[in-house]
Amino acid sequence: MKKRSRTIYVPAGLSSIFQVCYEGNRDLELEGARGGGFRLKLGTYTYAELSKVDEVFINGFKEEGRTSLKVIELFKKKFQIEESIRLFHKIEVPIGCGFGTSGSGALGAVFAIADLFDIRASYCELANIAHKAEILSLTGLGTVAGLSSFKGSCGLIIEAGGPCICKTQMLKVDRDDVLVSIVISNIDKATVLQSEEKKKLVNALAEDLMKDIDDAYSLLDRASVFAIKAGFADAYLQKLMDFMLKIGFKGVAQNMIGKAVHGLVDKNHLERVVKELSRNLNYKIVVSELQEKNPLLDYYSNV
C-alpha cells in the first residue's frame, strides 16, 4: 500500500443559477440540481495518506471539513476499509462563496483515496460517492455532477441527477474571455437549501429564466435577474454588478451562493478592468482562466 496518494487536481465550479431538484425519498444518485456556471482553472489540489484518525486539513490547517469527512465515511463503508485517512486540500479560491469548493474537494478526496488504496471502481461509481457526500453534508446539490459531467468551460445541467445520470448542455464562451469575481463574504448554503418557501421561489424563477439561456452571456444575463428576484442580491451587489458592466464586463451575475459577483472580461481589457476594480473597491478580486477539459477523466484514464 502507498504511503500517500498522488495529488488530484479538480477545477473550481462557479455556479451562476440553480434549481433545487431534491425530493428526499429516492436514491441520492437521482437527486441534485439544475443550473449553470463555469469551470475555472483555479481549483483544489488533494492528496490522501494513512492516519491514526480520520481528519481533514485545508490550506495547512486542520478543519471540520464535513463534506470531505463524509467522503471518507462513505468510501470506507462501500469498500470495507478499516484504516483511518487524512486528507489534505489546497484550495485556490475563497471557501463558501459559490466557487464549489466542497464539490471540488469531495471529488478530489474520492479519487485520492481510490489511488491510495488502489481501488479499481468505475469513474461514475467514484464520482457518485462525492455527489452523495455533498448532498448529505448540505453543502451543495449539483456541483459534483456539473464538474464531473460538463463538456467545455461553461454549461448547464438540464436534467438533474448525479454524475453520469444528469444531462448537460455545453454553452459557448469566447476563447479570449477570463472570469473575474469580486468576493465580499460567504453565505451559509444550508439555510437556503432547507427553507421550503425559499426553495419554491428559487425553483420557479430558475425554471422560467433557464429557458432563455443558450450561451455564456445569456447565462450571466438571466442569472443576474435570478439573483435579484430571488432576493440573493442586495442593493449593494446590484450596484456593483451595474458598475462592472460600465467598466467593460461582457456579462455579470452573483455567485451562487455567496456575497460575491462574477463576470467575463476579454483578456485584452483585463489589466484595465482589474485596475479599475482595485481603485474603487477594497474586496478580494479573483481572476481565473476557464478550464475546458475535465482533468479527472485524464487522471482516470491513467490509473
Rank of each mutant, 00 (worst) to 15 (best):
I129R: 01
R272E: 15
G96V: 07
K76M: 12
V93A: 06
I91Y: 01
K62W: 07
G161K: 00
V303G: 11
G96D: 03
V252Q: 08
S15V: 12
L69G: 04
C21E: 14
K200E: 15
G32V: 00
Q238K: 05
L40Y: 15
E159Q: 08
R120L: 06
I81W: 07
K41T: 11
A133S: 10
R279M: 08
D212R: 15
G263K: 03
P11I: 13
F232T: 12
K167E: 14
G32F: 00
Q194P: 05
D214P: 02
E64M: 04
S68P: 10
L297E: 12
V56D: 06
S181H: 11
I81D: 02
A114T: 08
G162D: 15
N282Y: 04
E82N: 12
S278N: 14
Y123S: 00
E289I: 11
K41N: 13
M241N: 02
G155T: 12
G258T: 08
K70V: 04
E82T: 15
S153W: 14
T143F: 02
A121G: 10
L171S: 04
L141P: 11
A106Y: 01
M241W: 00
E289N: 12
F226T: 03
G155W: 08
S218W: 11
N128Y: 05
C21A: 10
S195L: 04
S288M: 13
L107F: 10
K275G: 13
V178H: 07
G24Q: 04
V265K: 14
I85M: 03
E64H: 10
G24V: 05
M256W: 01
I17H: 02
V273W: 08
M256E: 01
L50N: 09
G155L: 12
L290Y: 13
L107M: 01
I285N: 10
P94C: 00
A230H: 09
C124L: 05
P163M: 02
S104K: 15
I247D: 06
I158P: 14
M170H: 08
I81F: 15
A133C: 01
E83L: 07
G96R: 12
S68W: 08
D176F: 11
Y299N: 06
S224W: 08
R26G: 03
L42R: 12
L290M: 08
Y45I: 07
I119Q: 03
A112I: 02
E63P: 05
A204N: 15
T139E: 03
E64W: 14
V180N: 01
V261N: 05
L69E: 06
D177K: 09
S137W: 13
L290A: 07
S122T: 15
Y300S: 13
L193Q: 00
D208G: 04
V173Q: 05
A33E: 08
T44Q: 01
N255Q: 09
K3D: 13
E83W: 01
H131R: 05
G13K: 11
F111V: 10
Y283M: 02
E292A: 14
E271C: 09
T44V: 14
S15Y: 07
F79A: 03
T46H: 04
H269N: 13
N59S: 00
G60R: 01
M244I: 08
E207Q: 14
M170D: 11
G98C: 09
G37V: 05
N59R: 02
Y45C: 04
L74C: 05
V303P: 12
A253M: 04
I257F: 13
R175N: 13
S218N: 00
F61R: 15
I182P: 02
R66F: 06
E159A: 04
L220H: 07
R279Q: 11
K52D: 12
